[in-house]
Structures are given as C-alpha cells and as structure tokens.
Design a binder for these strands. Sequence first.
DNA 1: ATATGTGAAAGAATTCACAGCA
DNA 2: TGCTGTGAATTCTTTCACATAT
Lengths: 198, 198
Amino acid sequence: MRRLSLYLRVLQEADALGVETISSEELARRGGTTSAQVRKDLSLFGSFGKRGLGYSVHELLGAVREILGLDRSWRVALIGAGKIGAALFSYRDFQRRGFHIRAVFDADVSKIGEVWGDLIVRSDAEIERILTDEAIDIVILAVPAEVAQAVVDRVARTGVRAVLNFAPVKLRVGDGIALRNVDMVLELEGLSFALNTR
Amino acid sequence: MRRLSLYLRVLQEADALGVETISSEELARRGGTTSAQVRKDLSLFGSFGKRGLGYSVHELLGAVREILGLDRSWRVALIGAGKIGAALFSYRDFQRRGFHIRAVFDADVSKIGEVWGDLIVRSDAEIERILTDEAIDIVILAVPAEVAQAVVDRVARTGVRAVLNFAPVKLRVGDGIALRNVDMVLELEGLSFALNTR
DNA sequence: ATATGTGAAAGAATTCACAGCA
DNA sequence: TGCTGTGAATTCTTTCACATAT
C-alpha cells in the first residue's frame, strides 16, 4: 500500500497546521487520488472516520503510523560507502522517521576504518557477524550492480528480512525477504519514453 | 512501460555474451515476469519475433532502444548540488545511457562557483536562462522538500518537458510535463509495512 | 517441432452510487 | 444535511490457449 505513505504525509502536514479533521475528499486532493480510493484504502484496515464529519487527523495519523509499522524504530545497515551510500547516510529524513543506521560496510580498504558520525565503516567481511549481532531489520544496498546479487545472497543468510536495493539490477531473493528497488536509471528511461512518445 | 527497461537490460546482457536469439520465455525468466506478458508488451509496439525461433537479440535491442527513446542523447540539468546531487552527478550509469548533465545549480552561495567536472555550479537565479539556452530536456530535482514545488514551477515555465524528482513530496505539474519520483522514504516505509504485517 | 502474436477469459484495481450513521 | 463505508459496476491488467508462421 504505497498510497498509505502518501496519506501519512498529508496527515502530518495537516497535523502540523493544527487541522483537527479531514475529509476523504481533501485527503484525496492533496494525495493525488480520489475520495473513493481513500475510503477503500482505509477501509481495508478498519473504520477510522465519522460519517458526516470526516476523519480525526490525530487519530488517523496514529492509525496509519501503526499500519505502516512506523510507531517503532527500525535497525538499518548500509552496505556500500560510496557516493550514494554517503548521501543516504546523511539523509535526515531517514532518521526523522525512525530508520536508524547502526552499521556501514564497504569492500574498499581505503574506506574501511573511516569515521562516519558515531560509526566506523566496517569491512564487508564482517557483514554476517555484525548484521546478526546488531539485530538489523533492514539493509540498504548501495553497492555496484556487479556485486549486488552476491551481497544480497550473504545478507539473506542472516536474520535480515528487508532489503532496499539501489543497484540497477533485478535481484533474486527468497520470499521470506521483502525487497524494494530504487532504480534511478529506470526512472530516467521512463522519462525518455514519455518524451519520445508525443 | 516500466518492464521495457527491464527487457532492455536483459537484452544488453545477452548481447554482451554474444547470444544471437532469445525466447519470450527466457526474457521473462530473467526479467521477472511471464512469457505471455513479454509477448503482449512487445506486441503493443510491433511484431519483432520469428515464430518457432524467438527474437533476434540485436534487432530487439535496437527496437526497444528506439521505443524508449534511448537512440539519442538527452540534455539533463541537475538542480541541487548537495550530497544527493553530488552522488547523482558522478553516477556513471547516467552518462553511459545517454543522459548527459549539462548544468548544475544550487541556491547555496558557498556551493556556487564550485567546479564539478567540466561544469561550474550555477546560482539558482540563472535557472530559467540556462535551461532555455542549453535546450535542456530533463531536469533532475535534488533540492530540499520545502522548496521543490517552487523550483518545479519555475522549471515548468522553461521548455523543459520532463522532471525526475528526488524530494519526498507530491509535486503538481501541468500535464505537458512528465514527472517521475524517486522517493526513498516511501520505499523504506513500504519495507516497514511489509515487516509489520507478518 | 517450436515459439510468436493475439483474441478471449480471468483476475485486480478503480470508480460509482447509495444506504446508513453522526 | 454531510460524509463515511461498501457492495455492485466498470475499467484496466494479466493469464490462457491456440491458430499461425518458420
């Protein structure tokens, strides 16, 4: 449910502005969908509104947070300390939403030992041990495409159940592991396609 | 057609290995879909295969490249010279696929004037003039969420017809502009949701 | 013999429209 | 009266299955 995250943002914004109540209509307009869609989406998880009134921003915010599992903090490891890894490490929105990076790895000896915030960049040889010891929930993969599959195979053997992949390759993982991809090349190609077909 | 990009990758890989011919079955297996899907997808754009044989890797590669508009090079501008902007700037896969960054902008006076490769970081005040003069096709937006809408509004007034947005906000653009989002927070929340619901 | 291209069938997702509650 | 929650209708996407071409 990708749209839930969008609703969450609208709700956070509304909450920050002190709005008490919001209609499916308004939620839809600001989330880029339709009111029926909003109601259907929410009804999948329960009944949060009041007929004739709308939704309590505060209550719905709590409910959506809970549905998305954002009412807790997640232990994250970053594998790959290159440019993209560095950008992600200092990306404040992650921390702000409860995704805390507990370990950073790289295969490059010149990077290993670097101090990043309160962490030290670790050798990739230590992946298995540290992911287990640190009880990591989510791995962010920011490694070159050529090695991504090999790394994710190693990650899969630890207790990690979720991977966010930045390498532009289709990874194969067992279905005990949730996988999401951020594929910038694919998105650019999508734009190229759109420009090309008009 | 997001899957077309995936097929393209499989084809490039096969081509690099010297494979001459590929079946929809193989294309599907390696692209993570089904053979019927592959055939339907391709049939939307033409008839590229030979019955009983499969597809010529070389021919199909050319056809898909053409469909996606990757048989030319695109003029790209990067707005936002922070950590993410820097990572994107040195991301080799963009250049390799014909997306050439011709200008970089930032609002921060301490960044303006920095030399990045063969470019100089420009003031955001110059956005309109340079996007027009350089005949930019695609803008990559790597600015803070708070200013993203204001910047895209300015971009929309130039001839730019495509925007790749990295800010975690829902942007509103007229429908003459193709918009794609890379939203890392959203993807992480998706993983949180997946972990939360088992 | 083999694998495409494509109508027809099945399955998902979205939208409609309205009964029911505040 | 106003807006939710939800079955029913619609539209979009995927899968099936087979006639057709090599």
